[in-house]
Amino acid sequence: AATEAALKDVGPIDLLVNNAACTKLQPFLEVTADQFDLLFNVNVKAVLHVSQMVAGGMKTRGSGGSIVNVSSQASQRALRDHTVYCSTKGALDMLTKVMALELGPHQIRVNSVNPTVVMTKMGRLGWSDPEKAQTMKSRIPLGRFAEEEDVVNSILFLLSEKSSMINGVALPVDGGHLAC
């Protein structure tokens, strides 16, 4: 209800970036129902809900638009202790494809960006152990984690008319990690 109230008075929205996410590192055998629900609510359900409201307005106006969901390379590559996070990002990638399929006829494009570790507050927290970080960096051909700007530039491209024929894509922003 709070989300609906907040979006009600914003006015027409033609571009949407779904960028909320959270994680809790837990080994598979220690995953709790509370953490499962929290991560799926924030990482998947919120995207569905906000996108329904915004895309509904785009469809009603007949204006088309572009939606970019911020996913993760963790949707395609398992990470130890990231059981639920990886699962939510896999679900988000499939949600992106279904949205692209159903909204495309209304000229609403839906894509995701799938970065490697990004040096946000959450990224620094999850990868602060130098040994753990080096193990991950060694699997990235460019040898570094992404900066916020790397992801922002990819999002701006997908929102722009320069990507007018791109729909339903999960764009890796991972320095080549998924190529290995």
Rank of each mutant, 00 (worst) to 15 (best):
G126S: 12
N111K: 10
L103C: 06
N111A: 12
N43E: 11
Q76R: 14
D93M: 02
W127N: 15
I108A: 09
T96S: 06
D129W: 08
S63D: 12
T88L: 05
A100K: 07
R109C: 04
A91K: 00
A78W: 13
T83N: 07
G90F: 04
R109G: 07
S71W: 01
R124E: 14
T120F: 03
V98G: 10
L92D: 05
K121Y: 14
Q76H: 11
S72M: 11
E131Y: 11
Q107W: 06
M53L: 15
V50N: 05
M122V: 13
D81R: 13
H106A: 12
L92S: 04
L79W: 11
M136A: 08
T60G: 10
T96P: 02
G65L: 02
V44F: 02
I140P: 04
G123Q: 07
A55R: 06
D81M: 07
I140A: 04
V98M: 14
L101W: 09
E102H: 05
S72E: 01
R124C: 15
R77L: 07
K132S: 12
Q73D: 11
L48E: 07
G90D: 02
T116W: 06
R77A: 07
N41S: 15
D93V: 03
P130C: 01
A133N: 12
N111I: 02
H82I: 06
E102M: 02
R77F: 03
M99N: 04
R61P: 09
G62P: 04
I67F: 00
D37R: 11
A55T: 01
C86Q: 10
A78N: 13
V68T: 00
R61V: 13
P130H: 04
L95G: 01
M94N: 14
V84N: 10
S87M: 15
M99S: 06
N111F: 04
Q134G: 09
L38A: 14
R109H: 06
T116K: 08
L38K: 14
F40L: 12
T60W: 09
K89V: 01
M94A: 15
A74K: 03
S71D: 09
G104K: 03
K137S: 06
S87V: 11
S112P: 05
G64R: 09
L95E: 07
Q73H: 11
V70N: 08
S63N: 14
V44A: 09
V110C: 07
P115R: 10
P141H: 08
R109I: 01
G64N: 04
V42T: 10
M119D: 14
F40H: 13
I67D: 00
V117Q: 04
N43K: 08
I140Y: 10
S72A: 14
C86F: 07
D37N: 10
V118Q: 08
A78K: 14
K59V: 14
A100V: 03
K59N: 08
D37F: 00
L101D: 09
D37K: 10
E102S: 08
K132Y: 06
V54R: 01
A55Y: 01
L39G: 09
L39R: 01
G123Y: 02
P141Y: 06
G64F: 08
G104W: 03
D129P: 13
L101T: 11
S63W: 09
T116P: 10
A74Y: 02
T135K: 15
P105D: 05
